[in-house]
């Protein structure tokens, strides 16, 4: 059997510019004798595509890591997000995409889009709010059992198999980023939901009596893909990237982080608290579309 190892870049059909590694593909032809098994491309943990017999490949291409491996960050990365407030028009597509991939019901989303107005005379604006993945995280400091922890790549995750449900982290978070499963999570009504193997990197499945929050989708990052909310935004308001390589992308456009923050006067929300968030905001100036009141219940 011929075993090819190739590192490969595939341009996904329509997502311009975005590079995706991967997808199962098979490679059979008339010139290959019939005894030989069909080969499939799979992605190795270090990001290479290798072809292995189909029988050896898992049914789906990627299996999220378990609670133990999830404590170790993706090596040599420092993830950041930039939110361009001038582009957000409260379309709520990021919330939908996040809810969909985290199996959340609309009543307890991880992402909120808030209507903000800094003072009476200034214009209101929409502020998408995720977990800020602080570098000095108040929530992690107070956790009595290390159920929530900060990784080397800057991401703050929750192990809901460790969480004791004391909710100290919720009190400690100045950004109200955390949600609690007060009862049986409504999504657990979904068929097969409880059989999904738990991974802190996907935050699925949620468990009663434990805390949840935006996780920056490390399962996607491990596959060299950006989080779901980034690609879902129709306005390209959300940028995501690696601070060490000074690059962020909104799915279409890829720019230097330092340049973006410098040119558009990027800031971090409540910098004075010293939490050192990894989410930056670009002020809501020079908007393409003027602010429009959208009723919050229009989302569905």
């Amino acid at each position: 059997m011929e075993k090819k190892e190739r590192r490969a870049f595939l341009k996904s059909g329509l997502a311009a510019g975005a590079i995706t590694l991967a997808t199962i593909s098979s490679c059979t032809g008339p010139n290959i004798s019939e005894e030989e098994e069909e080969l499939v491309n799979v992605l190795t943990p270090d990001g290479r595509l290798v072809q292995i017999p189909k029988s050896m490949a898992a049914a789906d291409s990627y299996v999220p890591v378990g609670p133990k491996e999830a404590r170790i960050g993706i090596p040599n990365k420092k993830f950041v997000m930039v939110v361009d407030l001038s582009r957000c028009t409260n379309e709520r597509k990021c919330i939908d995409a996040c809810d969909h991939h985290h199996h959340l019901t609309p009543d307890r989303p991880y992402i909120k889009v808030l209507r903000m107005q800094d003072n009476e005379d200034s214009s209101p604006y929409w502020m998408p709010k995720k977990c800020f993945q602080c570098d000095n995280p108040p929530c992690v400091k107070v956790c009595p059992v290390s159920a929530t922890y900060k990784r080397s790549d800057g991401i703050v995750l929750i192990d809901n198999e460790r969480c004791i449900g004391c909710r100290f982290c919720m009190s400690a978070c100045p950004y109200s980023a955390r949600v609690f499963n007060w009862g049986q999570p409504p999504e657990s009504m979904e068929e097969g939901y409880d059989e999904i193997p738990y991974s802190p990197e996907t935050s699925v499945p949620s468990r009663i009596g434990t805390v949840g929050k935006c996780d920056f989708c490390p399962d996607m990052l491990r596959q060299d893909k950006v989080p779901h909310c980034i690609t879902a935004c129709p306005n390209g308001a959300l940028y995501f990237g690696d601070k060490l390589s000074d690059t962020v992308t909104n799915g279409g456009e890829t720019v230097r982080l330092s340049q973006l923050l410098r040119e558009k006067a990027g800031y971090r929300y409540l910098e004075e608290l010293g939490t050192e968030p990894n989410v930056y905001y670009l002020p809501p100036v020079n908007r393409a579309v003027p602010f429009e009141e959208t009723l919050s219940d229009q989302e569905s």
């Binding site: 009595p144 059992v145 969480c163 004791i164 449900g165 004391c166 434990t210």
Partner: peptide, 23 residues
């Protein structure tokens, strides 16, 4: 009684982090 997961109370002893005011 206030804990969401009283069944995991023992974790406070097993995994206790002395940085936390709860500990």
């Amino acid at each position: 009684v206030d804990m969401g997961r009283p069944d995991r109370f023992i974790y406070v002893i097993i995994f206790g982090r002395i940085q936390s005011p709860i500990i």
